[in-house]
Design a protein around this nucleic acid. Structure first.
Length: 278
DNA sequence: CTTGAGCGC
């Protein structure tokens, strides 16, 4: 390579015109000749038929349009795209310590995540994938899903004394009596504490709290508890937590799907938790 | 960097 190359930045940018409908492409470039003076080199060429044949008629037609907008004031090869040195501060999904709208903000960022191609939005009511969460299901009021019992029973029917006669209609049905409840655990034997189905979640963003974990894990099955470890002094999350499932199978599916999942630009670790020593 | 809080009569 010549040492003259150093000065090439002084030259006007290369211009490419066409190819238009006729298939002609014109390239105008500038170089320094041996005497060091600037020369203009125009190269005309015919674009291969094959390449233009792939474009539809409208696209080819657009090529003959005159430049408009900002491009009209620029050279054909001019830079309409530029690198900005401006400092852009990344906005957190939610500022730490913000209490209002926690679950709403979590839901928004979740739906954004799933729009980005994640496959984990599986509605428990209608089993549609990638469309909505269970809480947003359009069918959620039409028919109650048989295989889910909510960890927060509907208010009014929750209290043990609420079975007052005369209130009529729907009597409270305990989870164990609901249709489809707890089939996997077997009838009598496995009545031990569900604490065994405990999943440890690490590498959480410090902005994430229990409601976020609930929304993230609930699609996999009934969740009995979510917990996020909080530093008692500062009040900020320590970046890990636990999610307990009724069914071990659901927990395993959550682990399979969510371990390594990108969440708040961190890679989640989701594994079986070792039982806490009491 | 990363495995949880409280317990009183």
């Amino acid at each position: 390579m010549d040492e003259d190359d150093d000065l090439d930045f002084l030259l006007p940018p290369e211009q490419v015109i066409g190819p238009g409908e006729n298939g002609l492409k014109t390239v105008i470039e500038y170089k320094f000749n041996d005497e060091g003076s600037k020369v203009k080199i125009t190269t005309k060429s015919r674009v291969r038929k094959l390449a233009s044949a792939r474009l539809n008629k409208r696209a080819i037609e657009r090529r003959s349009w005159p430049k408009f907008g900002d491009a009209a004031n620029e050279d054909a090869g001019g830079r309409l795209t530029m690198v900005s040195t401006e400092e852009i501060l990344m906005e957190r999904p939610r500022a730490p310590g913000t209490k209002a709208d926690e679950s709403k903000a979590a839901g928004d960022s979740l739906s954004q995540l799933s729009k980005g191609g994640a496959v984990l939005m599986v509605c428990r009511t209608c089993h549609k994938k990638g469309d909505h969460w269970t809480s947003k299901c359009p069918y959620k009021d039409l028919a109650a899903p048989a295989d889910v019992f909510t960890d927060k029973p509907p208010t009014g029917e929750t209290s043990t004394v609420s079975a007052a006669p005369g209130t009529g209609k729907a009597a409270y049905v305990p989870p164990s009596m609901r249709a489809g409840a707890d089939r996997s655990a077997g009838g009598s034997d496995m009545r031990r504490r569900n604490d065994e189905n405990s999943v440890r979640v690490t590498n959480l963003s410090e902005d994430r709290r229990e409601p976020d974990l609930m929304e993230l894990f609930h699609p996999f099955g009934a969740v009995t508890r979510v917990y996020v470890a909080i530093d008692q002094k500062t009040g900020v999350s320590r970046g890990f937590g636990f999610v307990n499932f009724v069914s071990r199978e659901d927990a395993q599916r959550a682990i399979n799907k969510l371990n390594g999942y990108g969440y708040d630009n961190l890679i989640l670790r989701v594994e079986w938790a070792t039982p806490r020593p009491t």
